[in-house]
Each structure stands twice: as structure tokens, then as C-alpha cells.
Simulated scan of single mutants.
Amino acid sequence: MSFEWQLSTPEAEGMDAKLLEQIDDYVKQKRYRLINSVIIVKNGKLVYERYFNKCNENTRHSIKSVWKSILAIAVGICLDKGLINNLDEPIGNYLPAFAGHNHHYHKLITIRHLLTMSSGIYWNGGVHYHCPMMQQMMRTNDWLSHIADIDMHSVPGMNFQYKEWDVMLLSAVIGKAYGSTAYDLIYHEMYKPLDIASGIWPSSPCGFSYTVMKGEEQSDLSARDMAKVGFLFLGDGSINGNPIVSPAFVKQAITPSYPSYGFLWWLSPAGYGCRGFGGQEVNVIPEHQFVSVIQATPTPSSKSYPDIHDLFLSQAIK
């Protein structure tokens, strides 16, 4: 299986090309110097592609927390292959440190809780989410044992809290189930079939994949490859008739677990998408067979750019 985008024009796919032409001026007016790419896929075709700062279709950016949404796909693949029995399995079945020896709530944490950011493990992201707790963990040799020593904030499943512990543990569970790492699963079962180019995700000292810290640039994807992530879910887990993950899992992943959140996918009234620090976005509007991608250079003071999607990309749909 191989995949290449078909090309078209906004006009041919029923979009307002004149509105899209205003994006350049808007980016300059707002002084959005860190934005590097804006693309649109409509009706399965690449209809708009704009690059800034000497970037092009081959330029790759660190995806930051878009990784979380891709990790959710890995869980779906594990379910499809029977490597995970169900989402309500205790993670202690895969991670002995969470079998209940450190805290009696640990044995209540399930895979579903990790997918919905509701493990109940205490988390403090720090000022501007600079994650001092993560830095402390990274100074140890056994990250799983370190996380297992952190106090529980609430009963698992009771509260949503966006945090890194849950995806770290989820990656470890996926690796145990697959017999390798979460990256290996994604590479062989998703990236390779879809011709997605990415470096190897880093590994923790105890052997699970991760890619959320500053400077971890090996998780980079091009804007076109980012669009494939959204297009995969738009196609109920298949692209061009080739299945990657089951429609049943896709449906669960984009069903609200908490307001505006599914299985590591952000939800909106019009659709769903992925978000990464510093302005990495994938937006999907199923009703209009629409996928958009925004990429930017992340910096400690960088921001997100939802206004570009809200004022131009989605509004260009006629």
C-alpha cells in the first residue's frame, strides 16, 4: 500500500478561494512569524497549501501533543489485533508497578482512564505548563516506578485532568501489549502503510516510547503527513479502502468522555482534531469532508492559532 495526495483547487471543491487568499495578509498583520504551514484537504484532495519561513511540503515539525492523538490510534490497533482484551482492563495487568502495591487506587486504573486523562494521579503542570514534575521524573532511571510513587489525587475515572502521566503510562501499556514499543507499532501498522515519514520516538530508560518534552524533535511530521492523521479518522479508520484501525474504535475516540474531549482527541461542535504545543493543529469537519493543518515553530512563549481556522479555513467552506 502507498499513499499520495490527489491535487485539486479550492474552487473545484466548492470553497471560497478569495477568502483563502487573505491568509497571507492576515498572518503578516497579526505578526504570526512562527507559522510555517497551512494546508487544506477537501473531499480527499489537497486543495490549499501555503508555506512560510522557507518551509515546503517536505519540511517536518515536532508534532508535540499531536502525539497523544496518534497514541490513541495505537490503542485501537492493539484492540483490533487482540493484543488488548478491552479498554476496561486494569493497567496493572501490563505494568506491575501499578498492580496495587504502592496505592490501592492503582489497581482501579484502566486503559480507558488513560485514554480519557482521568487516572487520578496527582499532576501539577507548573507555570505555563513547563512541567517541573516531568523534569524530576527524567532524572530517574525507572520512570514507571517514579510515577507509581506519586500520590493519587482522586479515584480513577472521577475527574478529567490534562496531564503527561496518563500518556506515558499508555505508551508503556501499548509497548507491553505489542512486545516492543508504541513507536514500533505505529511505524509498522500506520506510518509505513500511509507513507508517513518520522524519526524514531525517544525511549525512556525503562524502555517505553515518549515524545512530549522540549527538544524531542524526532517525532516530526510534515504538514501533508499530519493531514493523513485527520484524514484517517475522517475515513472511519481507513484510507483509500485500506483499513488501519476499526471504525468502532474511531467512533469511540471521537465520542465525548468529558466536555470537548474524547480518547486523546479534542472535540468541537463541528468536528474534532489534534492539538500540539506552539500551534500544531489538525482540524476535521466531517460534514464537509474537510481536514486542515496548521504548523508553527514552538517556543517557550509561543501560542496557538485557532483564529486562522475559525476565520478563514472553516469559513471558506461554502
Rank of each mutant, 00 (worst) to 15 (best):
E13W: 01
Y26R: 11
I35V: 15
I40P: 03
I39M: 05
V41A: 05
E11Q: 14
N36I: 05
R33I: 10
S37T: 09
L19W: 08
L34P: 03
V27D: 09
S8Y: 01
G44C: 02
K18V: 13
V38S: 10
Y26Q: 14
G14M: 08
V38H: 12
Y26N: 11
N43F: 00
K28A: 08
A12W: 00
N43C: 03
I35E: 11
R31Y: 03
G14I: 06
R33G: 13
K30L: 02
K42I: 07
L34W: 06
R31V: 04
E21A: 14
K18W: 02
Y32W: 11
P10L: 09
P10G: 07
I23Q: 04
S8T: 12
A17M: 05
G44F: 03
R33Q: 08
K30P: 12
K28I: 00
I40Q: 05
T9Y: 01
S8P: 05
V27M: 13
A12I: 10
P10K: 02
M15V: 06
N43S: 10
A17H: 06
A12V: 07
A17K: 03
G14V: 12
Q29H: 12
Q6Y: 01
D25P: 03
M15T: 05
N36D: 07
Q29A: 15
K18A: 15
P10N: 02
D24L: 06
I35Y: 03
V38G: 09
S8N: 01
M15D: 13
L7M: 15
E21K: 06
I40N: 06
